[in-house]
Amino acid sequence: MAVASSHQRLTTWLRFILAAVAAVVMVLPFVIMMSTSFKPQTLILEMPPELIPSEPTGRNYREAWTESSFAVYFANSLYVALSTTFVVLLLSSMMAYAFARFDFPGKKVAFVALLGGLMIPGIITIVPAFVLAKNLNLLDSLNGLTLFYSGGAVAFMTFLLRGFFEKVPIALDEAMTIDGAGAVRRFLHLYLPLSRPALATAAIFTFLGAWDEFVWALTVINDPGKRTLPVAIAALQGQRATEWGLVFAASAIAIIPVIVVYVIAQRQFMAGATAGAVKD
């Protein structure tokens, strides 16, 4: 018994140490970014580095927000991310509902084709996607970004939501059908309310994907006034290669909406992320 107890304590301590190391590895870059964003330019490369600046300043944040039309880029990214999230949730929830509760010709083939699209890396399709965007006059267009971001996210979100919709008790569906509820009413008043955790999870993933996307925005946006934040921050770094305080301040501003979205939907997101972990 003593040997078993000692072994258990050792295992617990090892898990604690590994978790602590992993936490430090993940948090340290963020701490360095925030620390550097409050340092004046003359102290950024000081040795040894200070995690808590001895002379903190908000100058980097003021310059990041007021210079180089940063507020415009912020608004562009917010518009694209929010509109993409709305379109993806609307389309994927309806498609997931159809795949989960209706039988129609070609259902299995369509779903397999949907999953097959997830296996193709997006970078492989960037050239034909660019040609398509050019032919549709969607270059230098925020709505064009929304359209292509939505097309890239709908398949996975449909797959995610379909699993949740299938868990809705069929007896509730049949009861509403007997009461005269049509497919649209059942979708709005039964499936969507019971699948809020899944919808919150899909919303967060979609928002983050659209907010952080860089390659496609860099490819199709040439107008400086239509840039999104990732492209704008990359351009800022190129113009001010040594002003890391300014670059990190811009990056810190860029993560504010991500934190806000996660805090608002945290409870539903955690419920959605853990759903299915315990089998009924």
Rank of each mutant, 00 (worst) to 15 (best):
L194S: 13
P56R: 12
I221V: 14
P224V: 09
E213W: 03
I170R: 15
F70A: 02
S68F: 07
A249Y: 03
A64G: 08
G276E: 13
L132A: 14
I255A: 11
M94I: 13
L14C: 07
L78C: 04
H189K: 12
A183G: 03
P193W: 09
V260K: 05
A81H: 02
G276Y: 11
M1D: 09
F130N: 04
A202I: 06
L172G: 04
L115N: 09
L160V: 14
L82K: 02
P128M: 09
F165M: 14
D140L: 11
F165P: 01
R101I: 02
L147G: 07
V154G: 01
Y262K: 00
E166V: 10
L139F: 09
G106C: 06
A171I: 12
V72I: 10
A19L: 15
M157Y: 02
Q237M: 05
R186A: 07
L14F: 12
L236V: 04
A155K: 03
P40V: 06
T146S: 04
E243D: 15
R185P: 00
L172K: 03
A100L: 09
P53E: 08
E55Q: 14
V25N: 02
L114A: 08
L142R: 12
F207P: 01
V21Y: 08
T177E: 13
L218N: 11
I123C: 00
N143G: 13
V278I: 15
L14K: 05
I264N: 03
I52S: 06
G116E: 09
A198G: 15
L208N: 09
E46D: 12
F74G: 01
P230Y: 11
Q8G: 06
L14I: 08
M1R: 10
S77G: 11
G209Q: 10
F130E: 06
D280Q: 12
T12V: 00
M119C: 08
M34P: 01
N135L: 09
Y79P: 01
A20V: 14
F148A: 13
F214S: 07
V220L: 07
L14Y: 05
K39E: 04
P53M: 08
K108S: 14
W244T: 03
I17E: 02
A234Q: 06
T42G: 12
I259R: 05
E67Q: 10
K226W: 00
I44L: 12
E46N: 07
P128H: 08
T36E: 00
F205L: 15
F156V: 10
S251I: 04
A181R: 05
G238I: 07
W244N: 11
F99M: 02
L229A: 04
R185M: 14
A171H: 08
F74N: 01
Q268L: 14
V278P: 05
T125K: 05
L218G: 00
Q266R: 15
P230I: 09
T125F: 07
F164H: 13
G238S: 13
F111Q: 04
L82M: 13
E63G: 00
W211S: 02
F111H: 03
P105G: 10
D173G: 14
V260I: 15
I256Q: 02
F164R: 03
P193T: 09
P128L: 10
A129E: 08
I255E: 11
S150L: 06
L51V: 04
Y73C: 01
D173K: 05
A2I: 11
Q239S: 13
V80E: 01
A64E: 05
S150C: 07
P197N: 07
G180H: 07
L236Q: 06
I52G: 06
I221L: 15
A254N: 14
